[in-house]
């Protein structure tokens, strides 16, 4: 979007007044738009969150790309290709939304490639079998939908609009995954075992996608104040568990949690403790695939550089020829 502008220099008094006006607008549920005045901290917070989200969509293509050439049928292959193309599109919507805040696409990619910017840890796990593709659609996209539906009403206009579009497209992702897993779970014993194995490996990382417990989530308070976020990590995680367990029951699969049980009093499923050491290990770069993922992204960017340069040179040449004519 064109509406990028450097924040003006203001005095401390002005700043406090502007901030009060900003907060009043947010409280009144008025969306913040690119050229509106916003606190520098809000701008930084949004750039960080939206670009991380974009990077997640972007890196998220890699685990699934691993299976395009080995999809079991043409129907599955066409669906997987369409899904991965969607992920690229989602990254593009989100990068554009972040650019309205005054950061550049190149800067964001630079931060991803240098390791400065993070992306969702879930994509640092490997896709070992075809059942992983089904499980990613079912659980990872399922968890992403829960998170993203909550973000459709986030305070920053371009981010909220990107989320609405993404949510519309994401539901096919989850359904194609569930169809794959249903086929496997109702197939031969070996196929069912494959589906169970994938569930065993992806269940806990999927729960970690909602982020640390509320008490350990330092950014939550300000995110609520600015209405970037409207539901807590733990609430969203609980919603996901409550939605997913009946689906696992239908499939005849068991989530790898001995503590999981229905709690009639709360009306929710209770579940066991999450291994946060593993979570932080992967966040800090020591997951199974962190290095592979970043290497793949870097080389795609570097190997494609000549194409981007040639396209610009060609556009320039055409412009010059046109103005000479």
């Amino acid at each position: 979007m064109a509406e990028v502008e450097k924040p003006e220099l203001v005095t401390a008094v002005d700043e406090a007044a502007l901030e009060a006006t900003f907060q009043a607008r947010v409280d009144a549920e008025t969306r913040v738009e690119p050229r509106d005045w916003m606190p520098e901290k809000y701008r930084k917070f949004m750039v960080r969150q939206i670009s991380q989200h974009a990077h997640s969509e972007y890196v998220g293509m890699l685990p699934e790309g691993n299976w395009i050439t080995r999809a079991p049928t043409l129907r599955r292959k066409a669906a997987l290709l369409a899904k991965i193309q969607d992920e690229a599109g989602h990254a593009a919507y989100l990068y554009s939304a972040a650019e309205t805040l005054g950061t550049s696409r190149d800067q964001m990619l630079e931060d991803l490639h240098s390791g400065k910017a993070k992306y969702s840890s879930i994509f640092n796990y490997p896709t070992l079998t075809w059942a992983d593709i089904g499980t990613i659609g079912w659980l990872v996209d399922g968890a992403a939908i829960v998170n993203q539906v909550a973000l459709c009403r986030t305070s920053y206009g371009p981010y909220a609009r990107a989320m609405v579009r993404i949510c519309k497209e994401e539901s096919f992702h989850q359904r194609q995954g569930f169809e794959i897993i249903t086929t496997l779970a109702h197939g031969a014993p070996e196929q069912k075992a494959m589906a169970q194995d994938a569930l065993n490996r992806w269940w806990w990382p999927a729960l970690m996608m909602f982020g640390p417990h509320d008490a350990d989530s330092p950014n939550s308070e300000i995110a609520f104040k600015w209405k970037v976020k409207r539901q807590s990590n733990d609430d969203l995680r609980q919603r996901f568990v409550d939605m997913t367990i009946p689906q696992a029951d239908y499939l005849g699969l068991t989530v790898p949690d001995p503590d999981l049980k229905w709690n009639g009093e709360t009306g929710h499923y209770d579940f066991g403790p999450i291994d946060w050491d593993e979570f932080w290990r992967v966040v800090k770069g020591d997951g199974l695939c962190n290095r592979d993922r970043l290497d793949a992204r870097r080389s795609a960017h570097e190997d494609g550089a000549w194409v981007r340069e040639a396209a610009l040179a060609h556009a320039e040449k055409k412009r010059a020829a046109k103005s000479a004519a």
Partner: peptide
């Protein structure tokens, strides 16, 4: 609908189609 990067108008239309 949104925005995108492209080297020229022709490719901007192509990219918009895909995006």
């Amino acid at each position: 609908a949104g925005s995108l990067h492209a080297p020229d108008a022709e490719l901007a239309i192509q990219n918009a189609r895909d995006l």
